[in-house]
Nucleic acid binder design. Structure first.
Lengths: 152, 152
DNA sequence: ACAGTCCGTGGACGCGATCGACCTGAGCCT
DNA sequence: AGGCTCAGGTCGATCGCGTCCACGGACTGT
C-alpha cells in the first residue's frame, strides 16, 4: 500500500468506471501494472465493491430515516443483527457506543412504509425500544475524502 | 424509466464496473442500446456517480462518528451548511426534523482528530451544540436494496 | 558476485465501446 | 386509411482497451 495505491483508490472512489488505461495515465504506470495493483487492492479487502450511486427518489425511495435501537437487557446482539440484516430497507447498520446499541439508516418509499418498518423493528426479539428521526433532505452522502496514509 | 432501466440501475448498484456488453446480455438488449440508456440515466440524474467502496480502516479512517447538531435560534442554515461542506471528514450530511437540525456522519483516523473536529463544529457560527455518538463497528453500509417501481 | 524475488514494461490478440446507417412500430395529421 | 415523424432499437465496422505472456532491472540475503 504505497502512494500509487492510494492514488488509485482515490481515483476509483471518485469514479469507479475509469478504465485501466486512464488510471495508468493518471498514475504514470502501464495498464497491466495498474490492472495488477487494482486486483490486489480488491483481493486484499481494500476495495470492497464498485457501486453506482443512485438518486433515491428516482427509484421510489423518497423517505430516509435514522433509527436508534435500544436492546433488551440480556438480548442476543447477534440475533438482533440477523433480524436487521433481512430487512432490505435498512441500508446501513452501525453498532454504537451509548444507550442505543444500533443506529440504522433506512430508506422507504412512503411514511406508511416507514411506520410498518418501525412496527416490525419494535416487535423484533431483543429490541426494547426505537427512536426514529426523519431526514427532510440529504445534503450529501458518502462523499469520498482525500486519502491520507494509513497509520504507520 | 421502465423495467429495463430499473434492471440496469440494479445491476450497476451491485457492480458499477460491469461492461456494457455484460449489461446488454443481462437485460436482453444490444450493447449500443444499453449504452444509450445508461447515458440517459446518468444525464437524467438517476445515476449520480460510480464509486469504489473502500474499507475505511485500510486508508487510515478507523473512527466513525455520528454527530447531531442543534442550531442557534436565528442561525443561517445555509451558512452552517457551507461550513460543514468544507470539512472533508464529514462524509454525509442530513437535514433532519427534530431538535437537532443536522445529522453528520464523520470519519477520522483517531479519537484525537475526532476531538478536534468536534471543537471546530462547536466553534462554527450558528451551531448551538453538538451531540456525538461513536460507532464501534460498521455492520454494513449503503447496502443496495432491490429496486421497486417509482411512485406512479 | 550471484541467484531469487518483486514489480515493472512492451507486444500481441481478442473483445468491448462506440459511431453511423438503417429498421420498425406507435402516434398523429390530413 | 395512408403516410410522416420520432423514439428507440439492431447490425456492422472501427478503434482502443483489457489482459496474457515473456522479458528485464533493482533489491536482498547469502
Amino acid at each position: 500500500m504505497d502512494a500509487i495505491d492510494l492514488s488509485l483508490v482515490e481515483l476509483l472512489r471518485g469514479n469507479a468506471r475509469l478504465s485501466y488505461a486512464e488510471l495508468a495515465r493518471q498514475v504514470g504506470l502501464s495498464a497491466p501494472a495498474v490492472h495488477e495493483r487494482v486486483g490486489k487492492l480488491e483481493s486484499g479487502g481494500v476495495i470492497r465493491a464498485y457501486r453506482a450511486e443512485v438518486e433515491p427518489e428516482t427509484i421510489g425511495l423518497g423517505v430516509t430515516a435514522l433509527i436508534g435501537i435500544v436492546e433488551d437487557s440480556g438480548a442476543d446482539t447477534d440475533d438482533v443483527l440477523e433480524a436487521f440484516r433481512v430487512m432490505p430497507e435498512i441500508e446501513s447498520c452501525y453498532f454504537m457506543a451509548g444507550v442505543e446499541s444500533f443506529l440504522l439508516k433506512a430508506r422507504v418509499g412512503t411514511i406508511a412504509e416507514l411506520e410498518q418498518l418501525i412496527v416490525r423493528l419494535n416487535r423484533t426479539a431483543g429490541v426494547a425500544s426505537t427512536r426514529t428521526s426523519i431526514a427532510l433532505s440529504t445534503k450529501w452522502e458518502n462523499r469520498p475524502q482525500p486519502v491520507s496514509p494509513p497509520p504507520a
